[in-house]
C-alpha cells in the first residue's frame, strides 16, 4: 500500500524557498532517509506530510487523504523534531500518560523502560531537560506511539555519541518487531545508512534521487588519473562532478552505468566506489569549485 504520494508538490513561503517540486511515493513499512543540505526543504516537506503546512501547488496524499486538517492522518502519524512543544505544566511522566490516551498502539511499558534506560528525569517539565535529553525523550515518544507513519526530523540533535547509537538501535529493533513507515532526516548520512532502506535526496526544494540505499552505494564511481586521459574517457560518460585537481591527477565522479568494455578502454585510470554520503555531497554541489574558491582572488590569497 502507498502511504505517501507527492506529485509536483510545491510549498512556497512568502519569502520564497520551501519545497518547489517534490515528486515521489513511499510504500508502507519502509524506513526512508530524507537527506539534503541546510535549507533544501527537508523540514518543509515533512511538515507538509504531517499536515502542519498547506501545500501551495501540486498534489499530496497521505493514507489517501490530503493531510492538512485530516483527522485520519493526525491520528496515524507523528512528527517529531527538537521544537516539538509540550506544556511546562506537565511533567515528562504526565506527557507519557497523555500519549497513551491519544494513540491506540501506545506501548507504555516500552516508553517507561526506554526512559529509565536513557535516564530521562520523570518529574520535570520538558523545559528542564537538556537539549539531548529532550530529543531522546521525543524519540521515545515516537517509538512507543507506534504510529503507522512516524516522522523524525533530525532526531539525534544534541545527543551524545553513545545515546545516538542506542537510539538508532532501539529504532531498528522496534521497527523489526512492529513494521511501520518511518521517515528520518539527518545531516549525517553515515550514521543512518545502515538503518535506512531507501534514500530520498532533496536539493533546492526538488527531489533529486529516490532509490534503495544499496543502489545509491553503487550509483557512481570516482575515476582518477592523468588529467587528459580522464577528460577523454569521461567525455562519453554522465559526469556528476569534477573534483579539485591534485597536481596533474584529476578526478571525476561518473554515473556507474558504463559497460565493461568502456571500463577496459580506460586503461590506466583508477576506479573507486563512492559512498552514499559522498554521492549526496557531489549531487548537491551548488557551484563549480569549493570552499577554496571563496579564499582565492581575495586579500587572503
Amino acid at each position: 500500500m502507498t502511504v505517501i504520494e507527492c506529485s509536483h508538490l510545491e510549498k512556497r513561503y512568502r519569502g520564497g524557498a520551501g519545497v518547489k517540486d517534490a515528486d515521489f511515493t513511499i510504500q508502507e513499512n519502509t524506513i526512508t532517509g530524507i537527506v539534503g543540505r541546510n535549507g533544501s526543504g527537508k523540514t518543509t516537506l515533512m511538515k507538509t506530510i504531517a499536515g502542519y503546512l498547506k501545500q501551495t501547488g501540486g498534489e499530496i496524499s497521505v493514507f489517501g487523504e490530503n493531510p492538512f486538517n485530516s483527522l485520519k492522518v493526525s491520528a496515524n502519524s507523528m512528527y517529531l523534531d527538537e521544537y516539538t512543544m509540550f506544556s511546562n505544566a506537565l511533567t515528562t511522566k504526565d506527557i507519557l500518560h497523555h500519549h497513551s490516551r491519544f494513540y491506540p498502539n501506545w506501548d507504555a511499558q516500552l516508553a517507561q523502560r526506554l526512559a529509565d534506560y536513557f535516564s530521562i528525569p520523570m518529574k520535570v517539565g520538558t523545559d528542564y531537560l537538556s537539549k539531548g535529553q529532550k530529543n531522546t525523550f521525543y524519540g521515545i515518544l515516537g517509538l512507543a506511539a507506534r504510529c503507522p507513519l512516524t516522522i523524525f526530523d533530525e532526531p539525534t540533535t544534541g545527543m551524545d555519541a553513545s545515546v545516538r547509537k542506542d537510539f538508532y538501535r532501539a529504532l531498528l529493533k522496534d521497527y523489526l518487531a512492529h513494521p511501520r513507515t518511518i521517515l528520518i532526516s539527518s545531516h549525517h548520512l553515515d550514521e543512518i545508512d545502515e538503518l535506512i532502506e531507501d534514500l530520498l535526496l532533496i536539493d533546492g526544494g526538488r527531489t533529486v534521487l529516490h532509490l534503495p540505499i544499496e543502489e545509491v552505494k553503487e550509483y557512481a564511481m570516482a575515476v582518477s588519473g592523468p588529467a587528459i586521459e580522464v577528460k577523454n574517457w569521461s567525455a562519453q560518460q554522465d559526469v556528476i562532478a569534477h573534483l579539485e585537481d591534485q597536481g596533474s591527477i584529476s578526478t571525476v565522479i561518473v554515473k556507474n552505468h558504463f559497460t565493461a568494455a568502456e571500463k577496459a578502454a580506460a586503461g590506466g585510470l583508477r576506479f573507486a566506489p563512492v559512498s552514499a554520503s559522498d554521492l549526496c555531497v557531489y549531487l548537491t554541489r551548488r557551484n563549480i569549485g569549493g570552499i577554496d574558491d571563496v579564499f582565492s582572488n581575495s586579500q587572503h590569497g
Binding site: 500500500m1 513499512n29 483527522l71 496515524n76 507506534r146 512492529h178 513494521p179
Partner: peptide, 10 residues
C-alpha cells in the same frame, strides 16, 4: 501493515 487507527471526532 500496522492497521490504521480509526478515531471519532467526538
Amino acid at each position: 501493515m500496522m492497521s490504521l487507527a480509526t478515531v471519532s471526532t467526538g
